[in-house]
Write a protein that binds this DNA or RNA. Structure first.
Lengths: 146, 146
DNA sequence: TTAAATTAGTTGCGAGCGCAACTAATTTAA
DNA sequence: TTAAATTAGTTGCGCTCGCAACTAATTTAA
């Protein structure tokens, strides 16, 4: 069990490091890629929805959106129906970068899953999905609202 | 793939949160448990070895050892053979706490793995182990010494 | 034997993170 | 209809983290 968490840390760290390496020349760090990727896959998403999608606190979304906006990767648009809501859109610059970001992700997955069969890879995804569901259910129960 | 990393974050966060909840009354937070657990399972380990075991930067080990020492959970002893090395030992206080820490870990694993069979749980551990190995190999290749 | 290279540990720095407190907009109830 | 509760987003705080630069001890080479 202790092993378990340690392992997740190692993989998370590696992922960020890999993305850092590949994307720093574009003015993005390994953490920001995660946010930008989500925005590009859900254009017009609200910051609150982003926080839920990415399992991070909404304060981090606010800060990263400011950074990405200053970097010219996204723009925010106040929702007409609900003026509290900021809808987030990728800029053309971000969209142009997406194929490359996808290739970086693919490359990293290939490195991570080297030596695993397709079945094992799928099995792993499925099992992790289940664990996340369990974790979220517990987190919901203790009601750290976020 | 994007999903993949997000999932790891959610599980990591849940683990820390759970440990925070259960152990704060003992003066330990969710992160420190990880370090203390490793020390208790490898009495006399060096800080450098701890960093490798836990996949964290050695600077964090130094800081957490200072905190754990101040909290009365560990003591450091300069190695006689190599005066650069600090050997780290758990105090009696820490040892007494270990059964409880183990039960917290077990409880969390039970929550995480609810709905999974023994075989699936084992399979998951095995697959993650492989991924970590792959990640470490890549991290070693880019030589971020740490 | 002495000088250079390596190693364990520490510290300053900047970054990400979660939480709590806040503002402003919206919804719910009285 | 107005007051209370909720919601989206922002900001201050304190924590952990990784990196780089540093000290002191040790090992390697000249």
């Amino acid at each position: 069990m202790a092993t378990f968490l340690k392992n997740l840390n190692a993989i998370s760290r590696g992922t960020t490091l890999f993305r850092d390496e590949k994307l720093k020349s574009f003015g993005l760090n390994g953490h920001q890629v995660k946010y930008l990727f989500a925005v590009c896959n859900s254009e017009g998403v609200s910051q609150d929805e982003l926080a839920n999608l990415l399992f991070v606190n909404k304060s981090n979304v606010a800060r990263q959106m400011t950074a990405l906006e200053e970097g010219g990767f996204i723009r925010r648009e106040q929702s007409a129906e609900d003026k509290r809501v900021s809808k987030v859109f990728p800029t053309q610059k971000a969209k142009s970068l997406m194929p490359f970001i996808r290739s970086v992700n693919d490359e990293w997955r290939a490195i991570l899953c080297a030596g695993l069969s397709e079945e094992e890879c799928g099995q792993l995804s499925r099992l992790l999905e289940k664990l996340v569901e369990n974790a979220r259910q517990w987190e919901g129960k203790v009601d750290k609202n976020s």
